[in-house]
Write a protein that binds this DNA or RNA. Structure first.
Lengths: 347, 347
DNA sequence: GACAAAATTTGGAACGTTCCAAATAATCGT
DNA sequence: ACGATTATTTGGAACGTTCCAAATTTTGTC
């Protein structure tokens, strides 16, 4: 009794009731008398009992654990996504297994398998590059709901939640064109990804609508990172007919572009307009504040978690593809309204 | 057989052996004959068996789960820390429960309790502000090792892994003094935290060693964020006797300081020297590249995980306080070696 | 071919919970 | 006070694994 952990039987014994009654109390059943409930709870506190969820969900196969795997936790976009998921998952009484794949498919396979062994009752995943639809087949056939976020996977029969990449890029271009720009570049991102294709699509569409001819030289694909942004602006400035503005694959690239511009003695927001994509936290406080397409990663995480929990609770795994609206947040890096509000943020 | 999940008994039956043998195969025991092992493994693959860890660690109380709770996953310092932990934990066959407290003590208590119910066999925690030593008492008395990282907690009888805050700040000041600076400010951070006290201590010590008088006006405490940095530089520039350099509480503050300087038409690294603390990923690629005290958060995460695993495996919970060495990485924001290497990074 | 030793396999009995069906206690109307 | 309800409580029997001790098979030796 003093050795080993204290179990439901120990407290049943100490409280003078049966283990069944204790179990009832534990799950807050209304069947149990108020007096005995109080008694049992008192003993529970006194003996320092800790509930053993492992044992519990051995019996009843619903586990209160969800898995979340992201491709790059180092990127604050995904970190915030994870925080959003954590919020709703936590307040629903669940707990999250989180793993980082670092874009490695093998790692992803491993962690998903491991999570499955641990009995997760749902999975949210921002898949590594090259993930195939088949990779989640075994989960879904086992009736475990899966929600894919951020990056869509072509033929997968699972729910997905992606942001409106087409619309966002389109809005960015439209805004720049409205400011009078005609040479608008598209910078950063790996060309063989779905997200890239969608954003580029929006870019081309808006260009066409604004009556601007598409110029292949103006799309310069690089790594979707700060370093990639520096590289992109370097390449673009080698052109005979240089751009005067850029919509960037994401905010990291946009920051890199700003760095690259400064290194060339060009001031972003004044000599060159740049707009990002994502609206990470630093976008607001950077100098100049970044005009960007806000996708609210934390909100996306929350929505993904809600979607997953809904599916877990309803028991039905019918796939649902939802695209999350985005909005253009204009700040200073695009050069709009320079005279009026430019200095407000730095005060 | 076709309904419900496939268990060890199913495959025992299908392979014509006993469940005990299957169990032996599962844990890679050397007691089992090579032929039967192959046979069993074949059946396992064929029937699509998935191991039930919940059931397993009901029997044997070692769980292959570690918990990690951080105070702010949105801060890339902690995100990288988590990634470091994940790496070693994952390759040791463990899986991590990760939760974010957002500096809320209540939340922290909840998640720690929840993790405990799930049977974690160890915990790594970067405690929320205001955490007390008693908060982990119940874990340690249950024989569950706890490693506190980043922020130390005064009287806690658990292992800790913090970086050499004193030494780092000291090295930063020493370097700036060596460059000829006499008015060196200490910017950012909440004054009532242990980390702040340690770094400020190093700052004062190095100042004294360099024969520079300490000036209370030059330490300006703000939020440890980018916005806080902007604020700090604003306040410092109001002084009659302005500083010419600053060591910042962390890199976020340092970036904010750079922003604030630019807003005042001062070029960081040229007109004013700034050095950060942490060496987050962006420090290297920013313009100007940030001179900073490198604490290698990912490496810290790895070390913390190793320490924890060591304690889990050895079974002994004797506390061990280790302080992780740091080193000053000089880049451009401090103005050192401007002529020689300044342009290399932006190429 | 018999015996010992080594190698391999195997039935239970746990582990800590939740269910179910059934038992018991309390309440009520008459 | 007596059935009839209704409110509470309660023993097993699972859940899927691992361990133990013991049983069985194989191998080796003379």
């Amino acid at each position: 009794m003093s050795k080993g952990r204290v179990t439901v039987i120990d407290i049943a014994h100490a409280a003078g009731v049966s283990k069944s009654t204790v179990s009832l109390v534990l799950q807050g059943s209304s069947l149990v008398n108020e007096a005995t409930r109080a008694k049992v709870n008192a003993v529970i506190r006194e003996l320092g009992y800790v509930y053993n969820r492992g044992a519990a969900n051995l019996r009843q196969a619903k586990s209160k654990i969800v898995g979340i795997v992201v491709n790059d936790l180092t990127n604050s976009f995904f970190a915030e996504l994870a925080v959003g998921v954590d919020m709703v998952v936590q307040s629903a009484g669940y707990v999250q297994f989180l793993s980082n794949t670092g874009e490695s498919i093998d790692r992803q396979r491993e962690v998903v398998a491991s999570m499955r062994e641990h009995g997760i009752s749902g999975l949210i995943v921002s898949p590594a590059r090259g993930t195939e639809a088949a990779d989640f087949k075994s989960l879904t056939t086992a009736g475990i709901p899966v929600v894919i976020v951020v990056r869509n996977i072509p033929g997968a029969k699972v729910s997905s939640l992606v942001s409106d990449n087409f619309g966002g890029a389109s809005a960015a271009v439209e805004h720049l064109a409205g400011l009078g720009h005609r040479r608008i570049a598209f910078m950063g991102g790996f060309a063989n990804t779905a997200v890239f294709a969608e954003r580029l699509g929006g870019y081309r569409d808006a260009l066409a609508k604004a009556g601007i001819a598409f110029d292949d030289d103006l799309v310069v694909a690089t790594a979707p990172s700060r370093a990639g942004g520096v590289e992109a602006v370097g390449r673009a400035m080698l052109l005979a007919h240089k751009p005067t503005a850029a919509v960037c694959f994401n905010d990291a690239v946009a920051f890199g572009v700003c760095d690259g511009l400064r290194a060339r003695r060009l001031e972003p927001g004044v000599d060159f307009a740049v707009v990002g994509f994502d609206d990470v936290i630093e976008a607001e406080s950077a100098v100049p504040a970044l005009t960007t397409v806000s996708v609210d990663p934390q909100g996306m995480g929350r929505r993904a978690a809600q979607l997953l929990l809904k599916q877990i609770n309803s028991g039905k795994v019918e796939a649902e593809a939802i695209v999350s609206a985005v909005r253009l947040v204009v700040r200073q890096s695009c050069g709009a309204g320079l005279d009026i509000t430019a200095r407000r943020v730095v005060s």
